[in-house]
Design a protein around this nucleic acid. Structure first.
Length: 633
DNA sequence: TTAGGTTTCG
């Protein structure tokens, strides 16, 4: 019989390395560069590591594919190298990868989970590895080697180099050796930004942002070798760490400033210079990375600003504060994203008190609903992209008919994707009979599954809807440049029963992959969207309520907690007449029309107030319903 | 094979 046993690895201390051997080592990263293109076929990651022997050793990893390179995010990360070759260079020993080398990295922060980062499908990892990582973390911490601080935009000092962790919102190619990256990290840089004049035609991602979001955006110019990587970055959305970014104070003074005013008021430009000295480079951080999780929580809280923008577009300017809060400083309130809780005070505040309070708090109120906007139920629903925080109206059927008919006129000769089987379907609709081009995934050919998903070419909206009774998923398609593709994303990319699913026009990157290749059983709207490169938009309610009590009245927006308020999901309200009627009944009962019998009921609501930037020099306080319950009589 | 840290000059 054969005994299978875990291989036991022995690790050599860095001070014990001799040239000409293949060894396993552990170390703390004290320096690293992002992979850079060599004159050969590979990219090269250069790094330097140290361990408990206090010896530091340089290491080069050559790999053709970027994704196979060590996932080092920060100085202080722990790295484990298996089967690396030692070699003599400049009177010292260095490490280089060879056939069979395996690299795994870990976060270097003490106390955190020991999670291996690797692109290998299989790699050895056991309790001994956890222990080795913890030992190195403790050793590094004990030597007071601090991890480099992560500088938010709000703490950037002019004339310094720093690493920035941020989200990419938009980018623009300035010329062949310079690309502009527009990023944010949720904090506001106190220095005015370098203004970069770019047009919408050269911008990828949104071209303009609301005034208050604009104040949070940093313009970063990346040069030379970094332009190649910048091309691959996805806008909007990629989370980045930019290493060795330089904050350069500009020579231009703001208009109207005297020379006695401090230098802090100068413009600041951010440059990522060419070359790789000092680890200069850009890295896309995975969403699972703790710093990205934290960043997402912070950025998520700014969705309120976009709500504010949308309401402006409705020509319903938010309330200005009736009382003065004392400070005339333009100040941006940064909502505490986590732990946004209602304190559930027993005694509600009066609206007059609420309006006298500074923004940034919670208020329990007992109020009546005096009016609401919009008044037509279908306008309460919006499409919302959680990736770029944009909102859109839900298109009506007239608009959709237009898009479908344009797409069917456009459809020309094309090559169906290799994974699809093509045919025609005959639709008996009314007096006429129509034949449509249809495609199904070859994965579905196993008899019973062919009703799971169908791609239809050249149909009308009505025909697409008709097919939803026979097919679980209906994807309307057209052709473009000889290939099958989705319709304009203003139209639903997917019909499932009565539900229609939309993709975000700025975030989607349509590719016609086979949605069935991941398994027919798992096919929901999310997996189909993902396969097709579509960023799925969510349906949300959005309303403006006019609230009143004996002392005052104010406008509050009902958004995130609207589903709680109505007891109906936005998806249901869009697909289902009964749910829509239920929303209308709720609103009518809370806000009866003049002359109808019955009084106006009282509502217990929790409001959160926030200062929504300074539009035209004056800050505005906005209120959002964040929790609600009907008052018991 | 390649590179083998050590700040651009926009």
């Amino acid at each position: 019989s054969r005994l299978t046993k875990d291989p036991k690895y022995t690790y050599v201390r860095l001070s014990e390395l001799k040239p000409g051997a293949v060894v396993n080592v552990y170390g703390v990263v004290v320096f690293f560069k992002q992979p850079c293109r060599t004159r050969g076929t590979d990219f090269c990651t250069s790094l330097k590591i140290t361990d408990q022997s206090n010896q530091s050793v340089c290491c080069n990893i050559f790999c053709e594919k970027l994704e196979d390179h060590p996932k080092i995010f920060r100085i202080g990360d722990i790295i484990r190298l298996h089967r690396v070759k030692t070699q003599s260079f400049n009177d010292s020993v260095m490490l280089i990868n060879t056939f069979g080398t395996s690299v795994v990295t870990f976060d270097g922060e003490q106390g955190g989970p020991v999670e291996p980062r690797t692109s290998c499908r299989t790699f050895h990892f056991d309790q001994d590895d956890s222990r080795a990582v913890e030992e190195l973390r403790a050793w590094r911490a004990g030597r007071l080697v601090v991890l480099p601080s992560l500088t938010p935009l709000s703490a950037v000092q002019p004339r310094t180099f720093f690493d920035l962790t941020c989200q990419l919102l938009a980018k623009a190619s300035m010329d062949s050796s310079c690309t502009l990256l527009r990023v944010w990290d949720g904090s506001r840089c106190p220095h005015p930004q370098l203004k970069v004049d770019i047009g919408p035609d050269v911008t990828e991602g949104p071209w303009s942002f609301s005034a208050q979001k604009e104040q949070l955006i940093a313009n970063i110019l990346v040069f030379d070798n970094h332009v190649e990587l910048a091309k691959e970055l996805k806008v909007p959305g990629d989370f980045l760490r930019i290493y060795n970014l330089r904050a350069i104070p500009g020579s231009h003074r703001l208009p109207g400033l005297s020379s006695s005013q401090p230098a802090e008021l100068h413009h600041l430009a951010f440059h990522l210079h060419g070359g790789t000295a000092y680890g200069r480079g850009i890295r896309v951080l995975p969403e699972t990375c703790p710093e990205v999780q934290e960043l997402k929580r912070v950025l998520d809280s700014f969705q309120d600003d976009d709500l504010h923008d949308l309401l402006e577009a409705w020509n319903t300017p938010p309330e200005r504060p009736s009382g003065e809060n004392g400070s005339s400083e333009p100040e941006l309130w940064l909502p505490v994203a986590a732990g946004r809780r209602c304190s559930h005070v027993l005694c509600p505040e009066r609206l007059s008190e609420v309006r006298r309070s500074a923004p940034g708090g919670f208020h329990h109120v007992r109020v009546q609903l005096r009016s609401f906007q919009p008044s037509r139920p279908h306008q309460l629903l919006k499409l919302y992209c959680s990736k770029c925080c944009s909102m859109q109206d839900v298109p009506d059927d007239d608009l959709l008919e237009d898009i479908f008919s344009q797409a069917s006129r456009k459809a020309a000769t094309y090559e169906p994707p290799p994974w699809a089987l093509s045919g025609t379907a005959t639709l008996p609709l009314g007096p006429s009979v129509r034949t449509l081009d249809v495609h199904v995934s070859k994965e579905l050919l196993d008899g019973v599954k062919t009703k799971q998903l169908i791609f239809i070419m050249g149909s009308s909206l009505e025909e697409a809807l008709h097919l939803t009774s026979g097919y679980r998923n209906v994807v309307p398609v057209t052709s473009s440049r000889g290939h099958m593709t989705l319709l304009d994303l203003s139209a639903p990319f997917l019909f499932r029963g009565r539900r229609r699913y939309y993709g975000c026009r700025s975030c989607s990157n349509v590719v016609m992959r086979d949605p069935c290749s991941g398994g027919v059983e798992l096919m929901d709207e999310k997996s189909i969207a993902e396969a097709l490169g579509v960023e799925l938009m969510r349906l949300v309610f959005l309303m403006k309520l006019e609230l009143r009590d004996a002392t005052d009245s104010l406008h509050a927006y009902l958004w995130r907690d609207a589903e709680l308020f109505f007891g109906v999901t936005a998806e249901d309200a869009a697909a289902n007449q009964e749910s829509q009627s239920s929303v209308c009944r709720t609103l009518e009962s809370l806000c009866p029309k003049e002359g109808s019998s019955g009084g106006r009921p009282w509502l217990d609501l929790c409001l959160v107030s926030y200062r929504a930037g300074d539009d035209g020099g004056q800050a505005q306080t906005c209120y959002q319903v964040c929790h609600s319950a009907m008052a018991t009589p």
